[in-house]
C-alpha cells in the first residue's frame, strides 16, 4: 500500500465524488418524475396509457443500462439528439431508474387497502380526491424504503457513465491507474468514497422514513 500516493491524490477524488453526487441527485430527481408518470400510466383507465407504461417498464428493465446509455450517447446524434456526456448520463440513468421506480410506486399504491378507496367514494369524494387525499398520502409512507433501495442502486449505477467518459469517481480512478500503475490503492480510495455516499444516503432515507411514519 502506497499511503503517500493516496494522500496526494485524494483531493482530486473528492472533486470527482462531487460529480458522482450531482449525477446521482439529478438522475434520481428525473427518475422520480419518470416513476410518477409511469405509475400514473400503468394505473390509468385508458388502455393506451397502460400499454405505454408497461412497455416502458418492460423494455428498460429488460435491457442493460450500459446499452441504454450507449444508444443515447453514441446513437443519439444519428437521430438528431446531440448531448454532452454528463447530460446523456443524467438522462440515461434517470430514465433507467424511472422504470424501477414506476414499479415501486405502483406497488405502494396498490398496497393501500381497497376498503379505503371504497369508503372515500361512498363518502362522495371524486376519483381524483380519493387519489390525492386518501390513497397517495398512505402510499407515500409505504414507498419511501423501497425507493431508498432504488436510490442506493442508482448511486452505484452512476459508475456506468465512466464508460461514456464522464469524469466522475470511477473514471478518475481509472485515469489515475493509467498514470500511477497502482490499481489497488486507487480503487480502494474510490470504493471508500462510494461507501460513505451510500451510507449517508441510507441514513438520510431512514430519517425521512421515521419522520413520516405514524407513531
Amino acid at each position: 500500500m502506497d499511503y503517500d500516493l493516496i494522500l496526494r491524490v485524494y483531493p482530486f477524488f473528492l472533486q470527482a465524488a462531487l460529480v458522482t453526487v450531482q449525477l446521482a441527485v439529478l438522475s434520481t430527481v428525473l427518475g422520480l418524475a419518470c416513476g410518477a408518470l409511469g405509475a400514473y400510466a400503468r394505473l390509468s383507465r385508458m388502455s393506451v396509457l397502460r400499454f405505454i407504461g408497461a412497455a416502458y417498464v418492460s423494455v428498460i428493465r429488460g435491457t442493460p443500462a450500459l446499452i441504454q446509455l450507449f444508444i443515447l450517447y453514441f446513437g443519439g446524434p444519428q437521430i438528431g439528439i446531440q448531448l454532452d456526456a454528463f447530460s446523456a448520463g443524467v438522462l440515461g440513468l434517470g430514465i433507467n431508474i424511472g422504470a424501477y421506480m414506476t414499479e415501486t410506486m405502483r406497488g405502494a399504491i396498490i398496497a393501500v387497502d381497497k376498503g379505503q378507496v371504497e369508503a372515500s367514494r361512498t363518502l362522495g369524494m371524486s376519483g381524483w380526491q380519493t387519489m390525492t387525499r386518501v390513497v397517495l398520502p398512505q402510499a407515500a409512507r409505504l414507498m419511501i424504503r423501497p425507493l431508498g433501495v432504488n436510490i442506493n442502486a442508482q448511486i452505484k449505477g452512476t459508475a456506468l457513465v465512466a464508460a461514456i467518459s464522464v469524469v466522475e469517481l470511477t473514471y478518475t480512478a481509472q485515469r489515475y491507474i493509467g498514470s500511477t500503475y497502482k490499481p489497488f490503492e486507487m480503487f480502494l480510495l474510490a470504493g471508500l468514497i462510494y461507501m460513505v455516499i451510500i451510507y449517508v444516503t441510507g441514513k438520510g432515507v431512514s430519517w425521512i422514513d421515521r419522520q413520516v411514519q405514524i407513531k
Partner: peptide
C-alpha cells in the same frame, strides 16, 4: 456498498498488482 464496475476493475487490474 461499491459499484460492480469498480469491483470488476479491482479484480481484473488490481490483482495483477499482487
Amino acid at each position: 456498498g461499491t459499484p460492480l464496475l469498480l469491483q470488476l476493475f479491482l479484480i481484473y487490474f488490481g490483482l495483477i498488482q499482487i
